[in-house]
Design a protein around this nucleic acid. Structure first.
Lengths: 130, 130
DNA sequence: CCTTGACTTTGAGTTGACTCCAGGGTTTAT
DNA sequence: ATAAACCCTGGAGTCAACTCAAAGTCAAGG
């Protein structure tokens, strides 16, 4: 797979993919004889994983740490699991936070609902009944 | 209320409060005779609102738009409501997204659970039975 | 063979949201 | 009345995460 194909598939830009590779987040991407990137299925899986975690706000730095552990082999399984558990905690906290904001927003919207009815009421007084 | 008190109450820094004022997100903060900021109750309510929305990822730009509409009076009620509805959509979408990631993460963690049991099994073979 | 368009690298630039600093004014406690 | 602690402004610096540019290379169609 070329860089453009991968970018299209995962809704990223080629620049972002090169950036990920440069900072060590997506290492060892293969090349053709001419030096052009050729993404394997495994590379694509990593891209999908990165994309997913990034979308949840996991930092690039944390992801680099994770792939680093992964590349050190199975001895790092406990650490990796620990990292994932921490990420899960963070994401759950984030969801909680968003739900709180949502509650407040709904409450505020109720207020607008009332004010709009009032406004429409005035409208009908000014224009409707005539 | 002084800037330091407001900052402490809302877990922000004085610099951030001054920044918000500078960019027009928190306008018309009163001053003492000596030129020192003196936050009113209403100012504080705005700070709370801003803090809340920022915590949900609503951009500073969007918030500026909202306060701008607010300051134009009640004619902008429909627009403001519209803005809030859009924000709510975004936040709900974000929660959905996070839940999806959470599902995937749990699935991945199950895999680690298995691998760790296996690993511990090997441990007991290597060391435990001796 | 030549053009066209996608690819390469390195390095610099951008964006959003702060965060810090220098140089100075104000308030408060001793 | 003077030091300590806080406040002011304007502008520069920082950080994460991209994003773009310049100058050159590679592959496919005519």
């Amino acid at each position: 797979m070329t860089i453009a194909q991968v970018a299209r598939e995962f809704q990223l830009t080629p620049d972002t993919l090169r950036y990920y590779e440069r900072i060590g987040l997506l290492p060892n991407v293969g090349r053709t004889a001419g030096g052009i990137r050729d993404y394997s299925q495994e590379d694509c899986n990593w891209v999908g994983y990165i994309k997913c975690m990034r979308s949840a706000g996991v930092s690039v730095e944390t992801l680099i740490e994770y792939v680093g552990l992964f590349r050190q082999g199975k001895d790092t399984i406990p650490q990796r699991k620990q990292l994932l558990l921490e990420q899960r905690e963070q994401i759950m906290g984030r969801i909680q936070e968003l739900n709180d904001v949502l509650t407040r927003l709904n409450w505020k919207l109720d207020g607008y609902e009332e004010r709009m009815l009032q406004y429409e009421g005035n409208l009908s007084k000014d224009e409707g009944e005539k």
